[in-house]
């Protein structure tokens, strides 16, 4: 694990106290390895609930208690026949695809103006981008609920999409602008000098260079939208998205089917993030 030099311990002179040898050994070991142990414990903490959900999704007993009472895939079988679940997962997918496409487009455009142009009121523009990321989802959710009511919009998947775009677009924008500020504007100038129009320069130079940033922004957008609960909770009306459906089931008591659904949802997210990371890595090479 430890690639670099050992920092925190350094070459400390060993103390010549009268503590017994095994005890001093233990202390030396702790001195050197406490940070490894700590790291391991934090990872255990981060993955504990995930592991518990996965493990108990295969458990026979209806209550997720120890000791383990046997292996079953019964809950997964029940899961795939749950029509409401399938419908809400479909709704989530529809919303996420829409939000990803629109959010990535708006975010990429917005990033270009943030990094490439100087204009009046740019600071206002900046804060209008950053603010939606910092406002608690709950506030945005109830705000949107009142706003849609005021405008006379009936709440359904459409309003969920609009609401999610408000906080998803800034994340894409920031992600893309990070990769945009990392590349040399001279490349664009060179293209222009060689006679390319502004459009051709965008299409042939800017966009291809930005592609890795855009792709990770899009994956970010998809994950944010697919996992969003708060906006959908307040703006979906009678329609369910997957997290809203899960929420209502969780509040109706414990059922192992929830564990099975959760496992699938977790697996899906993990595949998504590992995939996007591998993609990013490949593009960097």
């Amino acid at each position: 694990m430890s690639g670099g030099t050992d920092v925190t311990t350094g070459d400390r002179p060993s103390e010549m106290t009268e503590t017994g040898l095994p005890l001093r050994r233990l202390r030396d070991v702790l001195d050197t390895y406490w940070i490894h142990v700590w790291t391991l414990l934090v990872f255990a903490f981060l993955y504990f609930p995930i592991v518990v959900l996965v493990v108990f999704s295969f458990e026979k007993g209806t209550y997720s208690t120890l000791p383990w009472s046997g292996f079953t895939v019964q809950w997964y079988a029940e899961m795939v026949t749950d029509q409401v679940l399938i419908d809400s997962a479909t709704n989530s997918a529809i919303v996420a695809v829409f939000v990803t496409v629109i959010g990535t487009t708006l975010g990429t455009l917005g990033a270009i103006s943030l990094v490439r142009y100087e204009f009046k009121l740019k600071s206002v523009y900046r804060s209008l981008i950053i603010a939606p990321m910092t406002v608690p989802g709950l506030i945005l959710g109830v705000g949107l609920l009142m706003w849609f009511k005021y405008l006379g919009f009936s709440t359904d998947l459409k309003t969920v999409m609009i609401g999610q775009l408000v906080f998803v677009t800034p994340f894409v924008l920031i992600t893309v602008s990070a990769s945009l500020s990392g590349f040399d504007p001279h490349l664009e100038e060179a293209a222009r000098d060689l006679g390319a129009s502004r459009w051709q320069t965008y299409r042939r130079v800017t966009i291809p260079m930005l592609m890795p940033g855009i792709v990770s922004g899009a994956m970010f957008a998809f994950a944010l939208s697919f996992d969003d609960f708060l906006i959908a909770f307040f703006t979906s009306g009678v329609k369910n998205t997957l997290p809203v459906y899960l929420w209502s089931r969780m509040n109706h008591g414990i059922s192992p089917v929830i564990n099975a659904i959760s496992t699938v949802v977790l697996l899906f997210s993990i595949v998504l993030i590992v995939g996007s990371e591998l993609l990013r890595r490949r593009n960097e090479l």
Binding site: L46, Y47, F48, P49, I50, V52, L53, F56, S64, A223, D227, F229, P243, L246, W247, M250, I254, I258, N259, S262, V265, L266, S269, I270, L272, I273, V274
Partner: peptide, 17 residues
């Protein structure tokens, strides 16, 4: 990875714990 995975699912995991 945990940050990218669904919030409510992970919080629900704590209820099981």
């Amino acid at each position: 990875i945990p940050w990218w995975t669904n919030f409510i699912v992970r919080v629900y995991g704590w209820r099981l714990i």
